[in-house]
């Protein structure tokens, strides 16, 4: 969902940006005194500044509520039913304490690495990235996911870890 929103927002804002540049380019061949342009331009800039602050403020308020971190998200979702799965990244494999799940399972993946930094990326059967965290030596990161669809999910390495990076893939199954 967020990927689609990101793409559409980017295209939308970049289109508006291109329009602004095209408009100014179109007007560039005419010549006028700069002082009145500056005066009007600075007024518009004030609105532009507060408009941007408003958009960024709204985006901040809307998005900081659903953080995927242990500090907030974990406490909200961890229950007695949560399955805790240990995940260890090692060149070029994922070692997991459990690899088979059922639809409805809430899982806490406790992710670390033995050798170098890896990236734990959970992909659906349609190859959509749905959750990730870094897998680092000496650190444990917990990432939470509830399986709502059956299928064969994949864990892909998302942090470059040397020449076998692209083969560091593990399949896990989610039964109906």
């Amino acid at each position: 969902m967020y990927q689609t929103i990101a793409l559409f927002l980017t295209v939308f804002f970049e289109f508006l940006l291109a329009l602004a540049f095209a408009f100014v380019y179109g007007e560039s061949k005419r010549k006028a005194e700069y002082a009145p342009i500056q005066e009007k331009g600075y007024k518009i800039r004030t609105y532009w500044f507060f408009g941007l602050i408003g958009v960024m403020g709204i985006a901040t308020v809307l998005t900081l509520d659903e953080l995927p971190y242990h500090g907030s998200h974990a406490e909200a979702t961890t229950t007695a039913e949560t399955k805790v799965v240990d995940v260890v990244g090692i060149q070029y494999n994922w070692e997991m304490s459990e690899e088979s799940f059922k639809v409805g399972d809430k899982v806490e993946f406790v992710v670390t690495a033995k050798d170098v930094t890896h990236g734990f990326g959970l992909y659906t059967e349609d190859l959509e990235l749905v959750a990730q965290t870094q897998a680092m030596p000496e650190y444990k990161n917990s990432v939470y996911f509830t399986f709502t669809e059956p299928g064969t999910y994949k864990i892909l390495c998302l942090e470059y870890c040397s020449i076998g990076h692209h083969v560091m893939v593990k399949e896990i199954t989610v039964q109906p």
Binding site: I5, L9, T10, L17, L64, E66, P68, L129, Q132, E159
Partner: peptide
Amino acid sequence: FGWVAGAIPAIIDATIVVNHVMHNTKW
């Protein structure tokens, strides 16, 4: 134009919930 056009997807990616599913992708 190029600078601002690049800043837009960069800012979007700096949003934590977006980054959770787009970090280290080709985005």
